[in-house]
């Protein structure tokens, strides 16, 4: 099944008279269970694309179908539901709420999904265990290392059992050891059957995916996908 279907998607940022075309007509398909890296230099439009894929932003033109549904037809409430149920985000800067303990950060998407208190706690603890930071469950983000924080962020991304895990430079702020650990964690999720889209400007990180899509100046280079061998 096709998870992501982009058809001639453009994004133009306007500020006053200045217009920046960050994404210039991108078409692509990503299927269920794939692990895809979107790779390109800084400023090439990777984040812009990921925000569109993640329903955090809307394209200026073109259509985007997520699990077959045209996102542009969805209301604010439906979009919130899509972000909640179908997508899990991992950001470069972790984006954890500093006032909440790790497990409370992880249960946050479940709160918006209306899951009961006991089940939330149980699922949050399971997710933390799965990414290997169960011991830090009661720590606040400020009391954890970058690698641990990013693991908590990954736990938060997978706690709702989403169809798609979207990561924007997830290893960008980490040292090489922590980066490798987070990457292998994402590969493990992929092996467990999840669709993972990984954005990076580093070739070594991209090599961890089974498919690399190169982006430059807002356009995919080549036919929009280069297979690098499953489970590389």
């Amino acid at each position: 099944m096709t998870v992501i279907e982009l058809d001639d998607v453009r994004k133009i940022y306007r500020s006053g008279t200045l217009a920046v075309e960050a994404v210039r007509g991108v078409s692509a398909r990503i299927d269920e269970g794939e692990m895809v890296a979107i790779m390109g230099p800084s400023g090439s439009g990777k984040s812009t694309l990921m925000h569109i894929i993640g329903c955090l932003d809307v394209p200026t033109s073109g259509t985007y179908r997520l699990m077959g549904d045209d996102v542009s037809r969805m209301s604010e409430v439906e979009l919130a539901e899509v972000r909640n149920h179908r997508i899990g985000f991992v950001f470069q800067q972790y984006n954890l709420l500093p006032s909440l303990q790790a497990w409370r950060n992880v249960e946050l998407p479940l709160t918006y999904a209306g899951v009961g208190k006991l089940e939330r706690r149980q699922r949050a603890m399971e997710a933390l265990e799965r990414v290997g930071v169960a011991e830090q469950a009661l720590h606040r983000p400020g009391e954890m290392s970058g690698g641990q924080q990013q693991r908590v962020a990954v736990a938060r991304a997978l706690v709702t059992n989403p169809d798609l895990i979207l990561c924007d430079e997830p290893t960008g702020a980490l040292d090489t050891v922590a980066a490798a650990e987070v990457l292998s964690l994402l590969q493990e999720l992929h092996r467990a059957g999840r669709t993972v889209v990984l954005i990076t400007h580093e070739a070594e990180v991209a090599a961890g995916a089974e498919k690399i899509m190169r982006i430059r100046d807002g356009l995919f280079v080549g036919d929009g996908g280069l297979h690098v061998g499953a489970g590389a």
Partner: peptide
């Protein structure tokens, strides 16, 4: 923004 990304509707 983060809460919205995690699935909070505007009303929430």
């Amino acid at each position: 923004g983060l809460r919205k990304a995690l699935g909070a509707a505007p009303a929430t």
